[in-house]
């Protein structure tokens, strides 16, 4: 059982290792991730939102809908904790 687990993990690691060969180099300024939309965010954030911290303006303004969904996920997690644990507590008391 244990050997089977190790074999599965090693196979997954090998596949991922093979995948890294085609990935862009570390710290490449012209990698696809940093060429597409992020230059616009960096250059326009002060003019459009007066917020020097780009991460904040991106989090709450440009990607605000994303963060709304994420806040809802946290809300759901709190609700689930209450549903799982509080009913049992009431029964015990």
């Amino acid at each position: 059982m244990k050997s089977l687990t190790i074999i599965i993990v090693l196979i997954t690691g090998a596949v991922l290792f093979y995948g890294t060969v085609d990935m862009p180099d570390w710290g490449d300024p012209n990698s696809p991730a940093s060429r597409h939309v992020s230059p616009r965010y960096i250059t326009q954030t002060v003019a459009e939102t007066e917020t020097p911290n780009i991460v904040t303006s991106l989090l709450a303004d440009y990607r605000g809908y994303d963060t709304l969904g994420e806040t809802t996920v946290i809300f759901g997690a709190g609700m689930v904790c209450i549903l799982i644990l509080r009913s049992a507590r009431k029964r015990e008391e």
Binding site: A33, S38, I54, L59, E70, G76, A77
Partner: peptide, 23 residues
């Protein structure tokens, strides 16, 4: 400047990580 987009995505991912930890 560094690319801020992955930072934002991962910032939300960390908080979701703690929410899943609680559940």
């Amino acid at each position: 400047y560094l690319n801020p987009l992955p930072h934002v995505l991962m910032l939300t991912a960390i908080v979701v990580m703690v929410a899943t930890l609680g559940v």
